[in-house]
């Protein structure tokens, strides 16, 4: 007998495609936030499916901190070309040059928080009224309460205590002039779902996710990759390690994991056996107990 049950991955896929199409239908000028990380890669893959055989009817927006892994930019450009998508880039460096933000100094300096200003400037400049983001609720406790359709006021702020109720699959994207929405089609996905789906769909992933040799410094348990953006502190040294990245962000705050996982199957086994969350290696979340919530309220991703 034919069974009319979708597997969890196909059900998540269907839900995400529905949300992405809803964005195209309800908003005038949406864009898809593309960071080159696994979540935005999967989101882009789903967007491509949602409108196939037509092209994705909105551009990709990349907020470039200037501290990207070179592999990320290479991967981004190749993929954009393959999909025939439009790419808009907002540069944090421009925000610094214009005096919109002041760069952090010191050995722990990061441009992570500065991205918010660049992002909000890009929204204003291009008149985007909805941004699709790859955020997942399982990533971080502040994200656990985020809606699929998350309202932002005219300052780009999130008000977690006063969110619109979200029922069934009826999404309310109505807004006033100057306000916008962040939409998270992968809300219900976990890290494991993402990797399983990558395997199921055989999605090409950046080499950074697979184990390789790299010089890193161990800073309070976070393994930071060698780059011109990381300055050694007293007693620290570069060491050659066999690592991979579980998340990919800016080079100044993305920590690596010592790993032998060199294939999707091995990554899935590693994730299944892992006893720490993927954001455990993110220095940007370690700044305080509510670091993510505080950044999100200001308009962060």
């Amino acid at each position: 007998m034919q069974s009319y049950n979708l597997s969890h991955l196909r059900e998540l896929e269907a839900e995400s495609m529905f949300v992405i199409r809803e964005v195209a239908a309800q908003f005038e000028k949406p864009a898809l936030l593309f960071s080159g990380g696994k979540d935005s890669i999967v989101m882009l893959h789903l967007a491509n499916k949602a409108f196939s055989p037509a092209k994705i009817p909105f551009p990709l927006l990349h907020i470039d901190t200037g501290h990207n892994f070179p592999e990320t930019l290479e991967y981004r450009d190749k993929l954009v070309k393959k999909l025939g998508a439009r790419l808009v880039v907002g540069y944090v460096q421009d925000s610094i040059d214009k005096g919109r933000v002041v760069e952090e100094t010191g050995p722990q300096a990061s441009r992570n928080r500065l991205q918010t200003v660049t992002l909000l400037d890009a929204i204003e400049e291009h008149g985007f009224d909805a941004l699709l983001g790859g955020g997942r609720r399982d990533e971080e406790k502040a994200r656990a309460k985020e809606r699929f359709f998350s309202h932002r006021d005219e300052f780009g702020q999130w008000d977690p205590k006063n969110q619109r109720p979200e029922l069934w699959n009826l999404f309310n994207g109505r807004k006033k002039m100057g306000e916008h929405f962040r939409v998270f089609p992968l809300s219900n996905w976990t890290e494991m779902d993402v990797w399983q789906y990558v395997l199921l769909e055989n999605i090409d992933m950046p080499s950074l996710y697979f184990s390789h040799d790299r010089e890193c410094v161990n800073r309070k348990g976070t393994l930071l990759a060698r780059s011109e953006y990381i300055k050694l502190m007293d007693g620290e040294k570069w060491e050659k390690m066999h690592i991979r990245f579980r998340t990919i962000g800016d080079m100044s705050c993305t920590g690596a994991t010592v790993s032998q996982a060199n294939s999707l199957e091995e990554i899935i086994q590693e994730v299944a056996a892992s006893r720490v969350t993927e954001r455990g290696s993110r220095a940007d979340d370690k700044r305080s107990e509510t670091a993510m919530e505080d950044r999100k309220k200001e308009g962060y991703f």
Partner: peptide
């Protein structure tokens, strides 16, 4: 405290909003 993530919730020891949690066993997600 696993489910009460927002600053106000932690400060006041209350849960404010619907929170979504995820777990899986070999049988189901």
């Amino acid at each position: 405290l696993l489910t009460d993530g927002l600053r106000a919730e932690r400060e006041q020891g209350i849960t404010i909003d619907v929170a979504y949690r995820y777990f899986a066993t070999p049988k189901r997600k």
